[in-house]
Design a binder for these strands. Structure first.
Lengths: 197, 197
DNA sequence: CGGTTTCTCATACAGACGTACTATAACAGC
DNA sequence: GCTGTTATAGTACGTCTGTATGAGAAACCG
């Protein structure tokens, strides 16, 4: 086996190029040629590592997802481990505050449409995201049940709301209609109401 | 002035074609040729009424926004006019339940990215959406202040949360990770907590 | 050291893209 | 009825797209 090359690393460099281009000029500008130029390689290398464009975009989505989870984990590790703090970290990880998180949120939205359209044609396709969100919901619910909660809080209903709140504020912060501070304040205010301090 | 033609109506037919194509195959498939074929007219007619592709997409976004507002108004008119009911209608209008609302939500997301990327390059550009959301927030706040609210409710903080909740649940329902019933229940549950019944 | 596999590049291709251009049909006003 | 504006269609152009192909460099195995 000649010329060992770290395929995963190479692929990641290329999907990173996709993200940078998308951030700068939109997903429509992420063509094979543009991606190759951005990464400083030949067009064929993109073909070689992904085969087709669909493969490139799928890998990009996957990598962005992994990055987001990593970022979430580092947020959680920075807390004291209380349910309240973990949920706060979870929700705040959706808020785009720096270049990286802004990129993650943008890629999420940019790739979202294609997934939805695809899923409409074939509802059985792409179960990844569905289970992903189900895991999100389960995690939120689990943390809520750790408590201590206020008396009249319905954990399951609140879990649904919190799961939707993350992307909701994320979108508004991304397009500049809400400041990150306001998003944080909203999250904190709501959690304050749920938990006994 | 020869051959009077209702320009607005013609333009709307064409932007409707854009929406149908996007729903079926994604925004990337909404090319001049495809749009012309979908509407049953010549390619040049699309050029004639919008000039450039950017013009076509801008008009599409505008039309979709108008449709959404119309739908929201009809939702509100079906209520008893109480603050609680109006807010419920407002939030539920984001939930895609039929072909039309699903299309509206999808178009919203599909066109969102380009707006964000554009706004990043020139933050002063595209103030439409910003004021749009500010109006949304103002409306929600206004309704909240009509009350009657529970004792310890911070109207401004809740207004921010509710404004983010609409698109949040809308996204999840659109991609099938949440049922419309669940979204409705979440909205109702939260409003129940805010208002004195 | 030769051979095989892995990698990289450059180029070619057919098709689709947005747009410009020209010509023709339809109506309004004199 | 003629004239000029408006609307529509058809087509051509240059560019860019994703992908296929062939040729060459690099490294491991025997």
């Amino acid at each position: 086996m000649p010329k060992k090359v770290d395929h995963d690393a190479r692929r990641r460099e290329l999907t990173d190029a996709v993200c940078r281009i998308t951030l700068r000029a939109g997903l429509g500008s992420a063509t094979f040629r543009q991606v190759a130029a951005e990464a400083g390689v030949s067009v064929n290398q993109v073909q070689y590592y992904f085969g087709t464009k669909e493969g490139l975009l799928e890998a990009t989505q996957e990598h962005v997802g992994e990055r987001s989870i990593e970022r979430l984990m580092s947020w959680i590790e920075a807390t004291d481990g209380s349910a309240r703090a973990v949920l706060g970290a979870f929700l705040k990880s959706f808020v785009p505050v720096d270049e990286e998180s802004r990129m993650a949120m943008l890629m999420y939205v940019a790739l979202y449409t294609e997934g939805v359209v695809e899923a409409m044609g074939d509802p059985s396709a792409n179960p990844t995201r569905k289970t992903e969100v189900e895991m999100m919901y389960a995690t939120v619910l689990e943390q809520l049940q750790r408590g201590p909660l206020q008396k009249d809080v319905d954990a399951e209903a609140e879990a649904t709301l919190l799961t939707a709140l993350g992307p909701g504020v994320g979108l508004y912060v991304l397009d500049g209609t809400m400041t990150a501070e306001s998003a944080y304040a909203t999250v904190d205010h709501h959690l304050d109401r749920l938990f006994v301090t």
